[in-house]
Amino acid sequence: MKVGLFVTCLVDLSRPGIGFAALKLLEGAGCEVVVPEAQTCCGQPGYNSGGREIAKALARKVLAEFRDCDYVVAPSGSCSGQMKVATVHDLFQGEPDLPEFEKLAAKWYELSQFLVEVLKVERVPGKFAGTVTYHDSCSGLRELGVKMQPRYLLQMAGASIAEMDGAERCCGFGGTFSIKLGEISTRMCENKCESIRATRAGAIVGGDLGCLLNIEGRLRRTGDKDTKVLHFAQVIAGEE
């Protein structure tokens, strides 16, 4: 089974460890993983900034790079939503390449969904003795239905989960929103951090790096140097 790993631009630039954790998990489960080296970004920043043509150009680029894979997996609900939902429901509606994007969307998975629903993994390499709290990132949750899968995997690694109040509430990241409307974004993030602090968990875990950088940035700014901020792939791969 040939699985394409879509690393995501944020992981590539900022936290390559998440990409290697995903790679380890997939290879460990017996997948033949390919990582097209020309990959950059899914196009969502352009899409949500009104740059529709830029988003389409990048979606076509992704399609060309991953067309031959049996599956494509990304450690992000947000980028996966872009490729599974935005392309077929909006960007390429009524266009000749729609069927190609429909095929890509059908074989595209967010990492936790792939591990749980397709590979049906029953063990993970990571061991994590401690309490974590999980933030449900919006796109994964509401566009793709990512909810129990990462929790299931974290528990498989031995983590116990202390649910925060409003786990499904947006952290305020929203891509360029976090810069354009920084003050509101910061307040939303502070609300999220309040919920995180109240759980007293040693780590806040999520599935989208954008949200995690946002949360980490606020926690550190408000003096919290201890709470770990982790992608679930790092925890379950034992790479945190």
Binding site: D12, S14, F20, S178, E183, E216, G217
Partner: peptide
Amino acid sequence: GWTKGRDMPAPSGRTF
């Protein structure tokens, strides 16, 4: 807009 209320966690230094 970001750094007024939050730190920006720095990249690890090398790309994936």
